[in-house]
């Protein structure tokens, strides 16, 4: 089976440190005020002293049926053979219809390059044999990255073992990014 890159984010392990938020921006040159990847703060919720608080790292879900790709008028957005949704900078006109269509708010407009930008699982780093920076830098060790089509891969195994879920599953976009509940 061909490679299908995906990720598991274990919210029990995420410590909301925001290392991935900043790392993503530095390594992917995301302008200020925009977030291709960010850790949402959920809480503190509840009444003193019974409180809950967790972080929700959210970036592109690398959907199998991606609404953003469907709406792209120039075919700049496309699913690469390994399942990662890529934007061809040379084709993107910056109409931002994909940003309207993405249910996860995972796409941003890059004012400097005048095109839309999104998570590529750090395409350039992978080319150099490195992990996506969010995976490498994750302080809580919450992110697992690998081939979802390889049942032996840690990411596939853990998705199964930990009963991982997708965000907004009812939209049936079939994300390649999975979560364990906090």
């Amino acid at each position: 089976m061909p490679e299908r890159l995906g990720m598991l984010i274990d919210l029990k392990k995420c410590i909301s440190c925001q290392a991935c938020t900043v790392a993503c921006k530095v390594h992917n040159k995301v302008p200020l005020g925009r977030f291709v990847n960010r850790v949402l703060k959920v809480g503190p919720e509840g009444n003193f002293p019974h409180l809950g608080y967790y972080g929700l790292p959210a970036a592109c879900m690398q959907c199998t049926d991606p609404p953003c790709v469907d709406v792209c008028p120039t075919k700049a957005s496309a699913i690469a053979p390994n399942g990662v949704i890529m934007i061809d900078d040379k084709k993107c006109v910056g109409c931002r219809y994909c940003m309207a269509a993405c249910p996860y708010g995972a796409r941003v407009f890059n004012e400097e390059r005048r095109v839309v930008q999104k998570c590529t699982f750090c395409f350039e780093r992978r080319e150099r044999g490195r992990q996506p920076i969010c995976v490498q830098t994750c302080v809580g060790g919450a992110r697992y990255f690998g081939d979802l089509n390889d049942p032996q891969a840690e990411v596939s195994r853990l998705i199964h073992e930990r009963h991982a879920e997708n965000l907004l599953p009812d939209l049936n976009t079939q994300p390649g990014v999975f979560y364990c509940r906090p």
């Binding site: 469907d70 075919k75 006109v93 910056g94 109409c95």
Partner: peptide
């Protein structure tokens, strides 16, 4: 409103799925 205005002609390239095209 486009990011790169001179590329506007490219929007004609996907008339089967994008309503912008």
């Amino acid at each position: 409103d486009l990011g790169i205005k001179l590329r506007f002609w490219r929007v004609l390239s996907n008339p089967t799925s994008s309503w912008i095209s």
